[in-house]
């Protein structure tokens, strides 16, 4: 399972990531950050494919995506780009 981390204090709630995500992993939360923006949250973490579309489209660099190394036998490296 891959991981999406959202820096809620950076998020401005523009929601561009929610439409960029092909799997609809992200959606708007009910929380506000200190700036008063309604931030996004990871709603369906299990669906994430670590494509990083959200991280690339986020204009405020608030999203970081972590790819879980696949359970391949040792020696078969060099899969991730």
């Amino acid at each position: 399972m891959h991981h999406v981390l959202i820096n809620e204090e950076r998020c401005k709630g523009c929601l561009l990531c929610t439409v960029a995500c092909p799997k609809e992993v992200l959606e708007q939360s009910a929380r506000f950050n200190q700036q008063g923006y309604k931030v996004v949250e990871v709603a369906r973490q299990d669906d994430c494919t670590a494509c990083a579309a959200c991280a690339r489209i986020c204009p405020d660099f608030a999203i970081r995506v972590f790819r879980k190394k696949s359970a391949k036998p040792k020696g078969a490296k060099g899969e991730q780009a």
Partner: peptide
């Protein structure tokens, strides 16, 4: 054993931007 995908370029400063929500300047 997680690795970060699409890491930020080092030349970008890691600080909040003054642009409005949804502005494409950040991209």
């Amino acid at each position: 054993g997680y690795t970060e995908v699409a890491t930020l370029p080092e030349v970008l400063a890691d600080r909040p931007m003054h642009y409005c929500p949804g502005c494409h300047h950040g991209i």
